[in-house]
Design a protein around this nucleic acid. Sequence first.
DNA 1: CATTTACGTCAGTCTCGTTGACATATATGC
DNA 2: GCATATATGTCAACGAGACTGACGTAAATG
Lengths: 165, 165
Amino acid sequence: MVQHHPRANPLFLRDEELRQAIELLFYAYRDFTGEPDAILNKYGFGRAHHRVIYFVGRNPGITVSQLLRILKITKQSLSRVLSQLVREEFVAQRTDSDDRRRRMLYLMPKGEELERLLTERQSRRIARAYREAGAEAVEGFRTVLRGIINEEDRRRVTLAGSGRR
Amino acid sequence: MVQHHPRANPLFLRDEELRQAIELLFYAYRDFTGEPDAILNKYGFGRAHHRVIYFVGRNPGITVSQLLRILKITKQSLSRVLSQLVREEFVAQRTDSDDRRRRMLYLMPKGEELERLLTERQSRRIARAYREAGAEAVEGFRTVLRGIINEEDRRRVTLAGSGRR
DNA sequence: CATTTACGTCAGTCTCGTTGACATATATGC
DNA sequence: GCATATATGTCAACGAGACTGACGTAAATG
């Protein structure tokens, strides 16, 4: 499907290499979200609901504004899916006693169950890839992905989980 | 933000590790598409147009059905953006002389220019991450991403570009 | 010549992103 | 205490981009 002759010029390798990365990211993300999307469909939810459920499950007590900073969407976009999740009892809100303007978010049993279901699928996919690739490759995978993320958000994924291996 | 005590149980490490991967993918893809999205906006285009322009540029002469297999969207969804790109002269269609049912797709000058602009941004981001991570990490990054992709599509990103380092 | 393939299109639906304005409750600085 | 800032929610309106199912046409193919 791609028909350059290898090494047409000294820049070829680099350009080819970078395009390969672009495509890997596209295909990987496409398939990574494909399975959950299918499940969410049955619940009448979409990918946006998944993201909320995931990050609330991961950070119990997270506030709306913190969630907005993670998702980088507008208040309105979040509000639509969040209020639906609250209405259908997947997510609970509790007023923060320290600052009563804040609403802290938690998963309810239904939400935890769905979260487990979705995360399980994605984890299985990652675990398989990790197992096949080996520990060293995993470390490289993380390093490069971290480098792709805007600097101001890198800490979000580095505090926990790395550094031991 | 995450407040487990490390090593609560033997499964912790693995679960934590997998969740970290999930988050890395989310943030990386979010930021990876963020820049192009902003540019596309000025053209009145969206991410779907980007994907078409990218893959047509990458595979000159690609047919509609091949493109559908890559994007995994419906004919109707593709049709909307493709016909717009053709109408505005970013993409050209030419009937295949071998099989005159097929329409082969090519970028026109405007399309090439936009493709360059978008790919440049994404490439720059990847190149920076690659440079900072080193050759070994890059190899690991590719290996793991390939493992995440559904098997039937892995060859799409492996034929060219890998194996030399 | 019947069937399959490639492509396009019509109508309708839904999710999920956007903007801008406005309302309310609470916290905070002076 | 009052002005201001912050956290949240909500309304109306819009647009992109995914979906389904049906139908039509042209060309290839067995």
